[in-house]
Design a protein around this nucleic acid. Structure first.
Lengths: 328, 328
DNA sequence: CTCGAATGTGTGAACGTGCACACACTAGGT
DNA sequence: ACCTAGTGTGTGCACGTTCACACATTCGAG
């Protein structure tokens, strides 16, 4: 910066002003901009960060085992959406995968160390220690999804899992299905619990506890296992709401093994509208999850907190429309 | 740092030495470490970066459209592997997706701006402008895959696409297949061209140009299209090497439509050993691609360059063994 | 006893910015 | 002629480190 000040015949202060705004004469501005172009000057991030007490980085914290980080199609979309918004604002995104208790300690140190100015937290469960950590840190943060015990002052972005689950189940019932079950995955997660609650609400008096197969994960293998359980409990089943597309794909596999055809014998609906949905045969009817938008929105909320804005409404729910294809 | 120096009754210099190594008495070290714990002190990255002229960040540059960034199962694995290695060394990974010519300019500015100390570049094509940029920048970099015109002094990590393609094709021939075709995707890419070359070498005199269907992308839809083309050209085809698992999955779909059963009528093999491989029916015989290892290795090479080490061999090829399942 | 090496420790100068402040000039109103 | 407000510019300090250097102490060898 000193060099280009010298080249333009002005002082460092003036250069700083053309870079950051302030009173500068047209002549000085032109000379400086010319010098910048000539020298190929780029401001030094470290020095700027140092004096500004800002790192210009936002943590993207994924509370999942590493493998699920890849498997879960939503996380990738969220990441991309957030990354696009952040890099447009000249912020870096730092990926942090929290897999164990030990990692929680590491992340706590990281977040409190001024390495990042804010954080986007993906797939936190209720009672996750990270909630306390972030709450105590006064670090501008946004959760994607909303754990029940999330502090009131921390904003979140999500979809209405309950309403969407209710909607697609209702839609499934409208196709004339009478014995409809659910493969409920990850009910320890808020998304999982809400999807189950939505299913229950859609069924109303038809709800039968026996027709809910609970499985631990949102994945293919659990879907197949859950489907087999349901078929055992009621061979006359004619409809299934799978808690995710991966689960639905597993269910399709189990149904095929059992000799049932979809959608003729059994109607199947999923959730997420991930790449699974169009890889299966038949293509899945499902709920579209606007992953990239979720990420972009979350990033935007972090950025706005960083600018000192007050976030008016605490939670934002993005629309998640039903996409009707061939599996039901 | 000044505070904890005061608390421990020593000078900043001594504190710096316990942090970075050097002559320190046991007494001083204990007092300082106690003070650090008490205050909860964490060194300031920006200040350290400023004086060290290092950003402690490495760019992860993906030369793909945003959508493929998600679709391609390898990139996710590479990213995770690289991220693990980098964060273990206290380096941040900055994701940069290059999608257009305009992005190339942006990345060039970014790389030359001292925002990152090094770069890992994924899926560059031959003659990609990024090669010139990185070559001219003297920025410690590693390519994953090796474009033909990659400068001699830039190391790369990859797998031997040619040898592996040859191996799996040979294996397919060994099952007794006589008319074997290939769905060759992305032959403008080095990986695509090498896989085709390996196929050709395995077939030797049996090679028939007519039995190669070229498709632009490594994806499901192209796989289905390519398979239909091959069936049209030769309905008696009894074996197919698909350039990737996604392509193979598309091929399976087209074969099912055409009433062929796999592996009875037609043997199919893929490439990548991605999640596709076990989602299809039957499960795919394929070539395992060590994505996470590739990423970890690349990160390690960047880190070693940063430490000033000379990288002995320019290119490293990681083993990519054939995984034999049910589709052939 | 002296010297040099090994082991510790403190100090000042960077690193490249932003910001507060002091200052200079102009224009317009009294 | 004076003051004030607006506009434009230069200077010094601070941000939190690392590093080179100067200096202090101890210890063993000559």
């Amino acid at each position: 910066m000193h060099d280009i000040a010298a080249a333009a015949g002005v002082s460092r202060g003036t250069v700083s002003r053309v870079l950051n705004g302030g009173y500068v004469s047209a002549a000085a501005r032109d000379a400086i901009e010319e010098a910048i172009r000539q020298v190929g000057y780029v401001p030094n991030t470290a020095a700027r960060n140092l004096v500004m007490q800002r790192s210009h980085a936002v943590g993207f914290i994924v509370l999942e085992p590493h493998s699920l980080f890849l498997e879960d199609p939503n996380i990738g979309g969220i990441l991309l959406g957030a990354n696009a918004t952040l890099s447009a604002a000249d912020f870096q995104m730092v990926n942090l995968v929290v897999d164990s208790e030990r990692d929680t300690a590491r992340i706590t140190r990281y977040l409190s160390g001024g390495f990042v100015d804010g954080a986007i937290i993906v797939s936190a469960r209720s009672h996750d220690p990270i909630i306390q950590v972030v709450g105590g840190l006064a670090l501008p943060s946004v959760f994607i999804g909303h754990p029940r015990d999330l502090r009131a002052e921390i904003p979140y972005v999500g979809i209405d899992n309950l309403a969407s689950a209710e909607e697609i189940t209702t839609r499934l019932l409208a196709t004339g299905r009478r014995r409809v079950g659910m493969i409920a995955a990850a009910v320890d997660r808020d998304s999982g619990a809400d999807r189950l609650a939505g299913f229950r609400r859609a069924l109303g008096p038809l709800f039968d506890d026996n027709l809910v197969a609970e499985v631990p994960l949102y994945d293919f293998a659990c879907g197949a296992k859950g489907m087999r359980t349901l078929l055992e409990r009621d061979p006359d089943l004619d409809g299934v709401f799978a808690a995710s597309d991966a689960v639905a794909a597993g269910a399709l596999e189990a149904l095929r093994e059992a000799g049932r055809s979809v959608p003729e014998d059994v109607g199947v609906v999923g959730f997420d509208d991930s790449s699974w949905a169009t890889r299966t045969r038949p293509h899945l009817s499902t709920v579209h999850q606007p992953a990239a938008d979720l990420g972009a929105h979350a990033a935007d909320l972090v950025l706005r907190q960083l600018k000192g804005e007050q976030i008016p409404q605490r939670g934002v729910l993005l629309p998640s429309p039903v996409v009707w294809r061939d599996s039901a």
